[in-house]
Design a protein around this nucleic acid. Structure first.
Lengths: 110, 110
DNA sequence: TGACTATGTGATTATATACTCACATAATAG
DNA sequence: CTATTATGTGAGTATATAATCACATAGTCA
């Protein structure tokens, strides 16, 4: 137990944000929202899942502070709250590239 | 089902990477490793958890491609494999700031 | 008002994950 | 060889998460 309470709390918050995008469907949602806000029904159609399920995923991401939403008539429109979330995508790309590179290096020694 | 197989696979990989850091202890580990590689025993002491538990968390992160490791005598030394993972930390900071800002805005209307 | 549409939620079930303990493995030193 | 240390793993339990279905709510329009 060498972590301070402050750090511990920060790490929990950070983990909550990471958790909020740690699901293929939620990644798909974030990807879909990168070009602008969308309603639940369009999001559901885009990612190919039930509305009730999508609605739950959306609320998780709102709770974590990844998404924000507003009502517009019958619809609820969701949007990314911080564009930096998209940086995560380029990092994952780098991770996957690095994985590929390491695999190639391993294979070349055989 | 409007997602292509290719996108679906990519989103799964990305989610796996996100999952790999979506835990307070794993965030703590990544934070500890930002200044350089470390062995399991030192990591365990730093984050304040059992070695067996830490070992499991480490293997999850290696599988996802977030960490890499090497043996050195009795010890196994872990390190971040892609520095961009640390960018996630600044993004979460931005998310938390934004949350605070929104809360303040809400309170000011009362 | 009633019909319709979009969204959210309760309850259930299935699955995944985390933690602990005891034990196994591997490297090293004597 | 034995003892020691660092690490990893199997099994069990507890908890968290996801998906589905049925239903509730809220806004719109005739």
């Amino acid at each position: 137990m060498t972590l301070t309470k402050k750090k511990r709390l920060l790490f929990e918050k950070q983990a909550e944000i990471a958790k909020a995008i740690a699901h293929p469907l939620r990644i798909a949602i974030v990807d879909f929202l990168k070009d602008g806000e969308q309603c639940v029904c369009d999001i559901a159609e885009s990612v190919g899942s039930e509305r009730s399920n999508v609605s739950r995923h959306l609320s998780v991401m709102v709770s974590a502070g990844v998404l924000a939403c507003r009502k517009e008539g019958l619809k609820v429109i969701y949007r990314l709250r911080t564009p930096c979330i998209l940086d995560f995508f380029s990092c994952t790309a780098e991770c996957l590239k690095q994985q590929l590179k390491d695999t190639e290096k391993l294979l070349s020694t055989l």
